[in-house]
Nucleic acid binder design. Sequence first.
DNA 1: TCAGAACCTTGATCGAAGTCAAACTAGTAG
DNA 2: CTACTAGTTTGACTTCGATCAAGGTTCTGA
Lengths: 248, 248
Amino acid sequence: MVLTEPPLTQTDCAECPIRHRAVCARCEPTELEQLESMKYYRSFEAGQTVIWSGDRMDFVASVVEGIATLSQTMEDGRTQMVGLLLPSDFVGRPGREVAAYDVIATTSLTMCCFRRKPFEGLMIKTPHIGQRLLEMTLDELDAAREWMLLLGRKTAREKIASLLVIIARRDAALKQVNTTTRIVFDLPLTREAMADYLGLTLETVSRQISALKRDGVIVLEGKRHVTIPDFDRLLGETGDDADGGPLI
Amino acid sequence: MVLTEPPLTQTDCAECPIRHRAVCARCEPTELEQLESMKYYRSFEAGQTVIWSGDRMDFVASVVEGIATLSQTMEDGRTQMVGLLLPSDFVGRPGREVAAYDVIATTSLTMCCFRRKPFEGLMIKTPHIGQRLLEMTLDELDAAREWMLLLGRKTAREKIASLLVIIARRDAALKQVNTTTRIVFDLPLTREAMADYLGLTLETVSRQISALKRDGVIVLEGKRHVTIPDFDRLLGETGDDADGGPLI
DNA sequence: TCAGAACCTTGATCGAAGTCAAACTAGTAG
DNA sequence: CTACTAGTTTGACTTCGATCAAGGTTCTGA
């Protein structure tokens, strides 16, 4: 599916997370009005491609609900995920006309889009939007560097444990539960998507998950529903510093 | 070596690349004056550590000359390079008090530093500095994602070829030579540093360089001086799309 | 001019993860 | 109810890069 001119579908945006994350927090009423005028929602089903690398991209967006992935594919089909987009994450780059990565919905997905040109204009007139975007981009860069350590130096088992910790943390932040709550969540990714994330094959992912289950580090009901009986134990499996911090 | 309060050594900054890259291009004379007042140079010898992860960091900086690396180390000593800093690259993060990575000079190195607090103040008052920094950060994020593909999916041989292309490109950009010039450069990294960049061991790096040499993809004089007889041939070894673009 | 250190190369062997193949599970469309 | 599909697991075997070990090169400083 190729998006060249996304349709404008104006709907109410009261819950749009971009309000909290990139823009609006310090916006004047007149700026909010402008944002409303360039805003529209788009929804996708699980598995749908939001945009292909190389396509023209006339919007930037924020994930409202669901999960999307950014990935790169080599000529011969090898693919590597380079970004995991959870609710409130930002997609697209001001000033870039053409998408640099494939964006794929891994669950059903709703995004709050802003037409790019007017958004760029507003950014120039409203410095704090750019400042917020800079903070978010620096956070993403830190996450990417953490990910590079994972890809370059961790064992398959450590990679799986790290991914589980990342998902558990983001899930907890989203649900606003605290550290003491029992840690239970559903894996939002297939084994293949996990493999693309971690630079492994899906067979290795499957084997390592089975091993963590056999060793009692995780409890699985079905193939996706995970319980972590002892979060510190899981943390210990990641290879990261012990002071990597608590769940949230 | 731990830097907590870097000494202020004011010198002239006519050649400081930050003028071109992050600030100054659109600065008013009064802003330039302010920048001068918060600026100082620091020099390091090859092998010296500029700052350790976890140290207090009271400055942001731009590389003027030489090469530095950002790297992360796991408890057991496994290390992964997460950034390669060449002249005009920016180090540090506005708003961050504590360094997140080790910064190490791999050649003799000169940096143009700005005291962080006043720099942050200037950034708030001067939006275009933040805008420039956002662009540079987005570029770095793209580079990090390219690097993730390399770490996660490329073979050792492809990794080495990719690194050679990256160095050749940045070297050419720095020297302002054009595509048709014969491609000759010195490797600025030891085999071990290359291994840390690529998520390999130094032995594998050495073996793959020998293999590329044996196959005529590169010509080596000594251990560091590289000639690329056929750049397209080298590009073909990277596994990247053929349309990965020319030297510059 | 020699000793030592840092850096690099090469060989032999090993093991973690990849590949290929088969079978299992759960959901769903007919 | 059955057949199909997408997703997953498990087994057997292979391979790429790691590990361990020895020796070579270059440079510096005594």
